Simulated scan of single mutants.
Amino acid sequence: MTVYIQKHIYDKELIKIENISIHFNKSPDYLNRYFKQQTGSTITDYITRYKLEIIKTRLKYSDLTIYKIAKEMNSTDESHLNKTFKSVLGQTA
């Protein structure tokens, strides 16, 4: 399932739990429980942390602005992205 999420990370529709469950032909509740058992993380937390790692890499190794990166990652705006960074990673973007 992590490979599926990583492959589709830029498509916010495909990484919704409802669509992941359709892809794997399992209920959303089952997938959430299974994913948590296997990874120790919820699907939502995994997606958030994976996106933040991509954003950190892009900020470090590209010339893209935080605005462009936020847009690319389907974040609502820079402010929301910074709040997510702060709450999850304890630092700002």
Rank of each mutant, 00 (worst) to 15 (best):
Y46Q: 05
Q91W: 11
K36C: 09
K51P: 06
K86N: 12
K16C: 14
T2F: 07
K60L: 10
E72R: 13
I69E: 03
D45S: 04
T39H: 12
T65N: 05
I54T: 08
T42M: 00
K83W: 09
E13M: 03
I54E: 14
V3F: 08
I22Y: 05
E78H: 04
T92L: 13
S79H: 11
K56V: 10
F24H: 05
K16E: 14
L89F: 06
A93Q: 07
L52D: 07
R33F: 04
I17F: 02
I5H: 02
H80S: 13
I43A: 05
F85C: 13
D63P: 01
N32F: 01
K7A: 10
K83A: 07
R33L: 09
S87K: 03
K68S: 13
M1N: 02
G40T: 11
I69G: 10
F85W: 02
E18G: 01
F85H: 03
T2D: 07
K16A: 13
S27R: 11
S41I: 07
T57E: 15
E78T: 14
Q6M: 02
G40I: 01
M1K: 09
I54Q: 15
H8G: 06
S41C: 12
I54W: 15
E78Q: 10
Y67N: 15
K51V: 13
F35R: 05
V88N: 07
R49Q: 13
L81M: 15
E72W: 09
D11M: 06
L31P: 04
K51Y: 04
T76Y: 02
A70Y: 05
Q37L: 10
Y46V: 12
I17V: 10
I43Q: 01
L52S: 11
Y4K: 12
A70I: 03
Y4Q: 02
Q38N: 15
P28F: 08
N82C: 05
T48F: 00
A93R: 13
T92G: 11
I20C: 08
H80F: 06
V88D: 08
I55A: 08
D45Y: 00
A70R: 12
M1E: 04
Q91R: 15
N25S: 13
Q91V: 14
Y67H: 13
D63Q: 11
Q37Y: 02
A70W: 03
T84C: 10
S27T: 12
